[in-house]
Simulated scan of single mutants.
Amino acid sequence: MWKRIGIMVCALLLAACSNESDQPAPTLGADAKVAKAYLEEQGYDVVSYEGDRTLSFEKADLLELPTRSTWEVQTTPPDDYIGRDIRKERFIVRDHPLDDVAELGQTNVSVMMVDGEIIGGTSYPDSAEPLTGASYSLDGKTAEELHPDYMEWRSEWEAKYSE
């Protein structure tokens, strides 16, 4: 009896461990194809497609992480997208300004899209170790680089979205 239980436990463990490798690679839909072409036009070498996510946010979320850190590195204001579904097409690329920040020499990018149109995106270094910190813009800039007087910009942001 113990032998049967042991065999069953081993079989379950093997099935659980092998489940991840059985997952099919995500396929490029229409939005992903647009995003991939955009990234290639920007000079990035697309290594892989990592799938998509859909998200939305409300005005109050613009004062909280992670929504605030995503939108503070966009050149497009968030106002037209409050309450709307935003699709994030996720890729790993090379030849990006953040490639040398971590040991893998490549970068994760998320292209943000609404109704098939690119509205912005984020990037962060691809690393074997977990990373902390705020998002970078799609082209690897920090919020401080995009808003030279960051503290003044932040005060205006908080006043606008806390109303």
Rank of each mutant, 00 (worst) to 15 (best):
L62P: 01
D95H: 14
R4C: 08
W157Y: 02
S21C: 10
M8G: 00
S135N: 08
I7N: 04
M151N: 14
L65D: 13
S18A: 10
S127G: 09
Q106H: 05
L39H: 08
V109E: 01
K141E: 14
E158R: 01
W153N: 04
Q106Y: 02
A25R: 09
A25V: 12
G43R: 03
I92N: 09
A15Y: 06
D126Y: 04
E58A: 04
E152P: 04
D52R: 11
A11H: 03
M151T: 14
R4I: 13
N108F: 08
T142E: 00
E129R: 01
N108S: 11
S137C: 03
Y124N: 02
E145M: 08
D85F: 05
W71E: 03
V109F: 06
P26F: 00
E103N: 07
A60I: 05
E156A: 12
G105Q: 09
D80L: 12
A159Q: 15
P78A: 10
G120H: 02
Y49N: 01
A159P: 00
G43W: 05
E117P: 07
G120C: 03
L63F: 11
E163N: 15
Y161R: 06
K88F: 12
L55W: 06
E103P: 13
D45Y: 06
R68C: 06
T122S: 10
T76Q: 14
L63P: 11
A159R: 15
G120T: 06
G83L: 11
P125E: 05
E152I: 09
P66G: 01
L104K: 11
M8E: 03
Q74T: 01
M112P: 02
G140W: 02
L138S: 00
D149A: 11
A16H: 03
A159I: 11
I7V: 15
L12C: 15
D31Q: 07
P130D: 11
L146F: 07
G6E: 09
D31S: 14
R84S: 13
S18T: 14
S127A: 15
K59H: 04
N19D: 10
G133M: 01
L98I: 12
I5C: 04
G43T: 02
T27I: 12
V46F: 11
T76R: 10
R4Q: 13
D45F: 09
L131D: 01
L131V: 05
R53P: 04
D126I: 00
R68S: 03
L14D: 02
Y150N: 11
